[in-house]
Amino acid sequence: MTTDPVDGRRERYAEGLARLLDPGEQLRALAQAREGMGAGPADPQPPQPPADGGGPGFLGVVLNVLGPIITFGRLDDAVTRLFFGVSGRGGPGSAASLLRHALTVGKVTDLRESVLAVTDKRLLLATTGRMTLTSGAAADDRARSDLEVRFALPRAAVAGARVGWYRLNPRRLRIDFTDGSWLAFTVPLGESARPLREVASALSG
């Protein structure tokens, strides 16, 4: 009898999370997840205006030069919305903004898996240890057990969660927060949405 690789990963995640929970805290659900495609909430901190120095100064000159690039950045946002829709909303410092920032930090340079977990007290975002393309199954299992919490929020800050269709994706988890912000997640291609549904049920129950 063979072990389902997805269930094996979940066991490794659960082992790693067990070491990170507070005494008496109970794990309710977990899922490997990634940010949904689309335009997301604002960055945690808005750009700071330059200090008033009586003139444009060096930074002012640089911003004038980069003006067209900034404009293209806004155009990119519009194109993202057109093709992929919206993956979250929220102002700087909102729950969705902070969660998205934690989810995306290091994703380009590190091969890590992101795990959403729900306990009886908190919503957690954890990442595995760093993996490589040639690390092998045993090393990957160790990395999946070596979890680090990147974000934690009390359950009371979650207003609700649900899994459903969005455009052509039937496996999208949306988490709504009590501050009015929200963020969407999906599972890796080809995997079941069952873990996301378990997370949604645990957050809504």
Rank of each mutant, 00 (worst) to 15 (best):
R10E: 12
A39P: 00
P47T: 07
R34D: 05
E25T: 02
G36M: 01
D22W: 12
G38N: 07
D22N: 11
R10I: 07
R28M: 15
G38S: 10
R34E: 11
Q26K: 13
P47W: 08
Q48F: 04
A51I: 07
Q45G: 00
G38V: 04
A42F: 01
E11T: 13
P49F: 13
A31P: 00
D43W: 11
G24V: 08
L17E: 00
P50K: 11
E11F: 07
Q45I: 13
P49K: 13
L27Q: 00
L30T: 01
E25F: 03
A33V: 04
A18C: 01
D52K: 11
R19L: 14
R12D: 11
L20A: 04
D52V: 08
L20I: 03
R28Q: 15
A29E: 06
Q26Y: 04
Q26L: 14
D22Y: 12
A51E: 15
A18E: 09
A29P: 02
R28E: 13
R28L: 15
P46Q: 09
E35K: 02
L30Y: 01
Q45R: 11
L21Q: 02
P41A: 08
R10T: 06
E11H: 12
R9C: 06
L30F: 03
P41R: 05
G24P: 05
A14W: 05
P23F: 14
D52F: 14
A14F: 02
R19Q: 15
R19W: 07
D7N: 09
G38A: 05
G38D: 12
G38H: 07
P46M: 04
A18Q: 12
V6M: 10
G24C: 06
G24H: 08
R34T: 09
E11A: 14
L17K: 05
E35C: 02
P47I: 05
P41M: 06
R12Y: 04
P46A: 15
A14D: 01
Y13A: 02
A31S: 10
R10P: 00
A18G: 06
P23Q: 14
D22I: 02
A33R: 04
Q32A: 10
E35L: 09
R10V: 03
Q48T: 13
M37W: 14
E35H: 06
P50T: 12
A33S: 03
M37T: 09
A31N: 01
E11N: 10
M37C: 07
R34Y: 02
A14P: 02
P49E: 13
A33N: 04
P41S: 08
A29M: 10
A18W: 08
D43F: 07
P47E: 10
P47V: 11
Q48W: 08
Q32H: 08
P41V: 00
G16N: 07
G16Q: 07
L17A: 01
E15F: 05
P44T: 08
P46H: 08
P5L: 10
